[in-house]
Simulated scan of single mutants.
Amino acid sequence: MRVAILGASGRTGGVLVEQALERGHEVVALVRTPARVAVPVPGRTEIRKADVTVPRGFPDLADVDVVVSAIGIGKGDGPGALVAGAKALAAAGVRTVWLGALGSGVSSRSGGLIYAGVMRLFVGAELAEKAEADRIALDAGATVFHAPDVTDGPLSPTRRTVPLAELRRPLLPPRISRATLASLLLDEAETGRAGSGILVPLG
């Protein structure tokens, strides 16, 4: 399968690239600054410049089977970068797995009261943009992951996803390792169908 990864130079995006190659896929790494990214496996990795804030310059993705988005709101990004990314992928017309955040939009209370408070404190200014980006992705037929706090750590043997509507609200703030999250995103890219709604990765 040919998998495009938006935000491939980020921490989660880098793990997605590694795991996709380990699974035998071809990878199209979509990054803002190609010169800063090394080609991990020549012949199976292509790097394309993809600045979501410049829609006219966004690359054609007609040759990929699925896009996994790992972009977030980075330091130095002005308001609107995340929404611009969602719009760019919606316009591309390719099946998409979009990474959102538990505690934003429709899942604002799904992580529990403590988690909701933490999100308002540390992510408050970005919550509205995250919710808008999710809406754009969902309207375009993407599957959206509402991931809890992402940490370093090993791949969980009990990893799974549940529809948001079936998530039991936890008492303590939930977490997931980056390796586990990347694995579940790729599982969905490989076997999922467009328009699966909002899924919560657990592990």
Rank of each mutant, 00 (worst) to 15 (best):
A29L: 10
L99D: 01
K49Y: 01
S108T: 10
G111Q: 06
D65F: 03
V97G: 05
G14A: 13
D63C: 04
A90P: 04
W98P: 02
A38G: 09
S107E: 06
D63L: 03
L21N: 10
V15W: 04
G24S: 12
D63W: 03
A91C: 06
V41E: 12
V94T: 09
R56C: 00
S110C: 04
A92Y: 04
S69C: 00
V17D: 05
G80Y: 03
T12G: 07
D60E: 12
T53E: 13
T33V: 13
E22I: 08
W98I: 09
I73D: 05
A101E: 02
R48I: 07
G72A: 10
I114E: 12
I114Q: 12
D65S: 12
G93T: 12
G13L: 05
G57C: 02
L99G: 04
V39A: 08
K75Q: 06
R23W: 02
A62I: 00
R32E: 02
I73E: 01
V66E: 05
V94N: 02
T33W: 00
L61T: 10
K87A: 09
W98S: 07
A91E: 14
R48Y: 03
R36P: 01
P42E: 08
G76Q: 12
R95Y: 01
R109Q: 13
G43A: 04
F58G: 03
V27Q: 09
V27I: 08
V28F: 02
I73N: 01
E26T: 08
R36I: 02
A88W: 13
G14S: 14
A84G: 03
E22K: 15
D65Y: 07
A84R: 11
G57A: 14
V66W: 13
L16A: 11
V83L: 15
E18H: 14
V39C: 13
G24E: 11
G14Q: 14
L99K: 08
A20M: 06
E22N: 11
V83E: 14
E18P: 01
E46T: 15
P42S: 11
A70Q: 03
R56I: 00
Q19W: 00
A20P: 01
V83M: 02
G100Q: 05
R95Q: 13
G85Q: 12
G43V: 11
L30R: 10
T53I: 00
R23C: 09
P40T: 13
G74H: 12
A101F: 08
G43M: 09
I71C: 05
V67G: 02
L16N: 11
A38T: 15
V94D: 04
V68S: 08
